[in-house]
Simulated assay, not measured.
Amino acid sequence: MDLAIAGKTALVTGASGGLGRAIAVALAAEGVNVAIAARRADALEETAKLIENAGGRALPLVWDLSDLAIIDDRISKIEDEFGPCEILVNNTGGPPPHAAVGAAAELWASQFNAMVLSVIGITDRVLPAMRRAQWGRVITTASSGVIAPLPNLALSNALRLSLVGWSKTLAAEVAGEGVTVNVVAPGRIDTDRVRALDAARAGRESRTVEEVSAASRLTIPAGRYGRPEEFSAMVAFLAGRPASYITGSIHRVDGGLLGSI
């Protein structure tokens, strides 16, 4: 399928590895110019090389998303290099595992700043150009926890759910202007984040990581963890022209993990 987005400009945050890196490469393979943001310059350069190998152009931006004051500066760099951002993929790192009880107010505040306010601020910065052009895509990655809250991930469950509410509201506001707004919720995708969560659970339960991973796979109808490129394929499709009538939705990529309808 031709997604008809060659030559478009995208920003993918959290692109130093895992889902963000896979998304950036998938968009590059469609001919999109991709600005990539993360805190680690060395990891960004690795992603940039993969983008170039896929036939795309990359603009690495060292960017701590919790620093809201630099949003305009970073977006301006994209506009100077590639033009207005037409595809925005809001992909933030996950907060540390924690129970719902006992998390410090400072932890909640810092994670809200990095995971929620940064997404809203970046989106607000790029939306005017999308609305003027009558075309744009805002795609936010979440977690299966926004559908069925996950144990010991209270911060992720709560903060990502706030982004779902924001995304749904925004979708209705801009749908008539050619801008779609969607959420993509991964299940157990084989990334460093999921491996770290498996390791943390193993430590809490005095089991090996292999035992925890095997038990987790048994809960997935597909019988395995997903691959990052399987997740990024959904994001690329939503970024494409054929998805122009899909907005205000949550799209699961979980191998059938969640039993809810």
Rank of each mutant, 00 (worst) to 15 (best):
M1G: 13
D2I: 00
D2W: 02
L3F: 10
G7N: 08
G7L: 08
T9Q: 01
A10V: 12
V12A: 03
T13Y: 11
G17R: 15
G20Q: 10
R21H: 15
R21F: 03
I23Q: 10
A26M: 08
A28R: 11
A29T: 07
A29H: 01
V32R: 07
V34K: 12
A35N: 02
A37C: 07
A38Y: 01
A38F: 08
A48N: 06
A48Y: 13
L50M: 11
L50T: 00
E52V: 10
N53E: 15
A54F: 05
P60D: 10
L61C: 02
V62N: 00
W63F: 15
L65W: 01
S66E: 12
I71R: 03
D72I: 00
R74Y: 01
I75V: 15
S76E: 14
K77M: 13
I78A: 01
D80A: 15
G93Q: 05
G93N: 08
G94R: 02
P95H: 01
H98F: 03
V101H: 12
G102R: 03
A103S: 14
A103C: 11
A105Y: 08
A105V: 11
E106W: 00
L107E: 14
A109R: 15
F112C: 11
F112R: 11
N113I: 07
N113W: 00
A114V: 04
V116G: 08
V116K: 02
D124K: 15
D124M: 09
R125G: 03
P128F: 13
A133P: 04
G136T: 08
G136E: 08
R137K: 14
T140Q: 09
T141N: 13
S143N: 06
S144A: 14
G145K: 06
I147L: 15
L150H: 00
L150N: 06
P151Y: 12
N152C: 01
L153G: 00
L153S: 03
A154T: 07
L155N: 05
S156G: 05
S156E: 09
N157E: 05
A158K: 08
A158F: 02
L159C: 05
L159S: 04
R160D: 01
S162C: 14
S162E: 10
L163M: 15
W166V: 02
S167E: 05
V174P: 10
A175H: 01
A175L: 06
A175F: 08
V183Q: 03
P186Q: 05
T191F: 13
T191H: 14
R193A: 13
V194G: 02
L197G: 01
R201H: 09
A202K: 09
G203H: 11
R204H: 10
E205F: 08
S206L: 11
R207A: 15
V209D: 05
V209Q: 13
E210Q: 14
E211L: 09
V212L: 07
V212Y: 05
T219Y: 02
I220N: 13
G226R: 13
R227I: 04
S232I: 02
S232V: 06
F237D: 06
L238C: 06
L238Q: 04
A239T: 06
R241Q: 15
A243F: 12
A243W: 04
Y245G: 01
I246V: 15
G248V: 04
S249F: 00
S249R: 14
H251V: 13
R252K: 11
G256H: 11
G259Y: 02
G259F: 02
S260Y: 04
